[in-house]
């Protein structure tokens, strides 16, 4: 369970103080599917980075599964990122000099898993995203959708509790995007928490819950299926 209590993230730009997040209170239950929306600069990526332990709030309390993470050291945070959280990025962030197998293997290597055990787990993870045949391909030899599926295999290989996806379909055409979303939703159906940041209402609509941010604050919470109504209402006004 993710509990955010009065989370602020403040940047000092010269004389001006910029509040990327200005008091976020939010609880996300295990197994929830949440989409975070909002215009550029609304703080949605910052929020995702704080949830993903890549960034620390300036103020406020973040509890992950009941444990306040604010006081944890780098080792502990890295361990949570490695085993508890899977990150999926808009631009995939695959390492070009490693083939698909090598990219998926990285978290296992960082976790100190024995090579013998790694091989089977990597094959299984690639199989799960439908890329078992492409294991030897470099990222540049794969399509965008395939790259994102490799990235998903990498994000899920250590069986995290949470998947964080920052515009996972942002660089993909609609059919590849659909594949990627279906894949992510499949993991969620097996009990993982799925949190997406997106611009795309079609993506957000599939979420159980949508959180809309503006200027670092939550301006609206609604079930995903109601998003269409909102859009229509917004368009009509």
């Amino acid at each position: 369970m993710i509990e955010l209590e009065d989370i602020w993230r403040t940047y000092q730009l010269g004389d001006t103080t910029l509040h990327a997040l200005a008091g976020i209170d939010e609880t996300i239950q295990d197994g929830e599917h949440v989409a975070i929306m909002g215009p550029s600069g609304s703080g949605k990526s910052t929020l995702l980075n704080i949830i993903g332990l890549l960034d620390r709030p300036t103020r406020g309390t973040y509890r992950l599964d009941g444990r306040a993470v604010g006081g944890l050291d780098d080792d502990a945070l890295a361990a949570i990122r490695r085993r508890g959280i899977g990150y999926v990025f808009q631009s995939y962030h695959l390492i070009e000099r490693l083939d698909a197998r090598g990219n998926v293997e990285l978290p296992l290597i960082l976790d100190g898993v024995a090579p013998r055990e790694r091989r089977g787990r990597v094959e299984a993870a690639l199989e799960a995203v439908g890329l078992a045949e492409r294991a030897d391909h470099r990222p540049s030899e794969l399509s965008g959708g395939q790259r994102q599926r490799v990235a998903i295999a990498r994000a899920t290989i250590l069986n995290p509790r949470v998947i964080l996806a920052d515009e996972p379909t942002g660089n993909l055409d609609s059919s590849s995007g659909e594949q990627v979303l279906a894949l992510l939703e499949g993991f969620r159906a097996r009990g993982l928490t799925l949190i997406l940041v997106t611009h795309d209402p079609a993506v957000a609509r599939r979420a159980e819950r949508v959180i809309i941010l503006r200027d670092g604050r939550v301006v609206r919470r609604m079930p995903g299926r109601e998003l269409q109504d909102l859009e229509r209402a917004l368009a009509g006004e």
């Binding site: 890295a78 990122r81 490695r82 962030h93 390492i95 990498r154």
Partner: peptide, 16 residues
Amino acid sequence: TAEIGLLKAIGANHRQ
């Protein structure tokens, strides 16, 4: 730089 960021995101600690 991006690769280092990625390594951190997927759980590499400072020592690693």
